[in-house]
Nucleic acid binder design. Structure first.
Lengths: 294, 294
DNA sequence: AAAGATCAATCGAAATCTTCTATTGAAGTG
DNA sequence: CACTTCAATAGAAGATTTCGATTGATCTTT
């Protein structure tokens, strides 16, 4: 049953029997018959298909919610049993928005000190992708914005609040100012994150509120690109203070706080809503709480 | 996996491999290997045993919680899929404290009118048994006291509040009074529910608070016995007003309200804490809400 | 419109897993 | 010390799962 549900989740995720089978390490006929048996067992059609994948039926949509829950619970269960004999060890998969990567490093480092047997995988992803990966059980937790955009059924642990700063070359006249406004940036040659990043959308809104139309000549999905570009001279970018500090250190880059109307955006840990969590995830969550308090 | 967990739940419930196997309709060796495979799959020992059942290990205790949850969710899932093709039909198993049996009848009758394809099984049980049966997935919901004694992880829907009344033969001098106190009953020949019933414990406490030691010469676990006994003459009993009214009607029995210090005890529907519920259970719950409002 | 590519279903054989009956072996009982 | 109870084990029968090969349908390209 659990295994069949796993197949179903894979097909729903990939939208393609062949790829889904590959992702599970089984052959396509096996998966086809698996789905068919699941449909027979439940007595409902889950997937529209006439010689090719045609999306989920309404029952399929509903079944997907249950499938994710059952498979997720089963994994958590197995994980808990595994930990009870091997001690707190295992694999923790995180997806993180680019501007929170330094915090991901901080968090995982502290967690690793306390629990040396836990392995980490940290991926840079957009906030939307993070939620999707949480749904599909591809990651155990994410680091993303807690406010602003709709989260699904998740538990959240606030970590810090983003404050935006200008990052420019030390030669730039703006570097001498103790602070700048969003309007001050109107003439500058901007490089920013791509618009699929929530951070960029937030920054866009800040510019809009200051009646400035930002003109980002270079867009990238990595803050490293932005910092490197700024270092070359001529370019400026906007980054949250922590990212900015990290990327600017040791280079001829200056950081200037940006003042003026912008909402505060909280970044924190996002984990599936499931009670109880896996012991490893629990360890991460409590480390996040400690880190937030510090 | 789910099937193995089912076996595990059965063994934990019965405390005996043979009986557990019988209750599942499989043979004992099948169950033995099933448990063994489950233990191997999880990598932990679940059950102490050296040629006979020796209780659950600590990991087994923990695993039992997960097993109940997974099996329960899987059933709810299947139920929901079944309903999506057969309409709101199915089987609803209720366990009810004896004094709430009339309400169980009322509730199921109203529910049956609205959803003619639902079948009901209603069992008279003690409140403790009801909670245990909910845990073991033997019933879908219970009708029991919502306050007073510790409930597990359940959702509750209040239905009514018990008010205690004296039930006596119409020839009894007490029948002429408009009300009686607990102390007034000290000389009477009492018959009451057995002490394993929470109702009896509540009544005992009422007597104690009135400094009366009740002397129940006949104890029974059915209100029918009590009413029949009172009808024979000489005996009196104490019942919640609804039960009393129902049992006394058409017989030479009188009902006298009992006044004086007693706490109010709320009776209502008790269902497993699981979101979402089965569609059939949802139907029952909303019917209960309507009935409570009426 | 024909040829080719893509994709999921189907078929049949091999492998794996499950369940059964019969038996064993261990621990408790009179 | 025989007797009973209980769970584990062994071995065979049966069911299920999986896979490679193929088919048949649909979509794309020429």
């Amino acid at each position: 049953m659990i295994h069949k549900l796993d197949m179903f989740i894979a097909v729903a995720k990939e939208g393609h029997f062949g790829r889904a089978a590959e992702s599970l390490g089984i052959t396509q006929p096996t998966l086809s018959t698996g789905i068919k048996q699941l449909e027979e067992m439940l007595g409902v059609q889950l997937i529209f298909r006439g010689s090719r994948y045609g999306g989920l039926t309404p029952e399929g949509q509903r079944a997907l919610v249950w499938a994710r829950r059952l498979v997720g619970d089963a994994r958590t269960f197995r994980e808990e049993m595994r930990v009870s004999r091997h001690g707190l060890s295992g694999h923790l998969r995180l997806a993180v928005i680019p501007t929170a990567l330094t915090w991901a490093a901080k968090l995982s480092a502290r967690c690793a000190v306390r629990h040396p047997k836990i392995r980490f995988t940290i991926l840079s992803r957009t906030s939307v992708e993070i939620l999707k990966m949480l749904d599909n059980l591809e990651i155990d937790a994410g680091l993303s914005y807690l406010d602003n955009e709709p989260l699904g059924r998740v538990t959240t642990t606030p970590l810090y609040t983003e404050r935006y700063t200008l990052v420019c070359h030390s030669d730039n006249p703006l570097a001498l100012q103790s602070e700048v406004t969003w309007a001050d940036l109107s003439g500058e040659t901007l490089c920013l994150l791509t618009p699929d990043m929530q951070n960029r959308r937030i920054i866009n809104q800040c510019f809009m509120e200051a009646d400035v139309t930002p003109d980002a000549l270079v867009e990238a999905n990595s803050t490293v690109v932005l910092a490197a570009l700024v270092e070359q001279g001529g370019w400026v970018t906007v980054l949250p203070s922590d990212s900015a500090r990290f990327l600017a250190s040791g280079k001829r880059l200056s950081i200037v706080p940006i003042t003026g109307g912008h909402v505060e955006h909280t970044v924190g840990l996002v984990a599936p809503y499931r009670e109880p969590h896996t012991p490893v995830l629990d360890a991460l969550l409590s480390e996040a709480v400690r880190l937030a308090a510090a």
